[in-house]
Amino acid sequence: MSKKEDTLSTPLRLLLIDDEVGYVNVLANRLSKRTFQVGKANSGAEAFQLLRQKDFDVAVLDLKMEDMDGIEILKILKKMAPELVVIMLTGHGSAEAAREGISQGAYDYLTKPCELTELIEKINEAYAQRSTG
């Protein structure tokens, strides 16, 4: 947390995309409490809508969703907001899809379910990379 002192002034804008409503909600709660500014989307469509309304720094995208293939969503997101850093959440053993995501411009992936601290670290890492890059 200490490392994130500089980001306190301008909260990191985070977009959570997952069709599992409960998961998105609780994750949003916990991340908000940790000074993130969190937007929630339960489908690709909702995500695109939110992204049209406001800017986000980092997106956390579940690759396995009902309505649309995660990779497709990733492609559209990157098209809509090339600056957006995307971290993918994958099921265990879906490294193939994750690797494809990285080749499509995603920053990295985490296997679900993951530790909150791990996620936060990854988000910060990604954000830092974006700032510098």
């Binding site: 599992e20 409960g22 998961y23 609780v26 994750l27 916990r30 679900k112 379910p113 909150l116």
Partner: peptide
Amino acid sequence: NPVAIMIE
């Protein structure tokens, strides 16, 4: 997923 939600 349910497990992830429970943990969170």
